[in-house]
């Protein structure tokens, strides 16, 4: 594969990482820690929202993030023809 393509592939990969890791940071650190008191004013059933993110929500989002990444990368690998045959 040409060098230029490789650079482009890597750049796209890094862009995916930046987006996914921002979400990762947002749900755990922002929702679960930094702004937990503010979010606790909102309630869903018996849960205060901040508390829910810290003990439940963030974990569900983590799982989704990994599978989104798997999907995106599999597509990207095929597009740049670097997947494993």
């Amino acid at each position: 594969m040409a060098n230029k393509d490789l650079k482009q592939y890597w750049k796209t990969n890094l862009r995916y990482l930046a987006i996914l890791l921002s979400i990762w940071f947002l749900v755990s650190y922002c929702f679960g820690i930094f702004f937990v008191d503010t979010l606790n004013n909102i309630r869903i059933g018996g849960f205060k929202l901040g508390f829910w993110f810290a003990q439940q929500g963030s974990i569900y989002v983590f799982v989704i993030l990994i599978f989104v990444y798997v999907h995106l990368m599999n597509k990207l690998d095929e597009e740049y023809d670097v997947d494993e045959k």
Partner: peptide
């Protein structure tokens, strides 16, 4: 809870 699960996102992505 967050610390011992969030690490898997780093593992999978990085």
């Amino acid at each position: 809870l967050m610390g011992w699960t969030g690490g898997y996102v780093l593992l999978a992505l990085l």
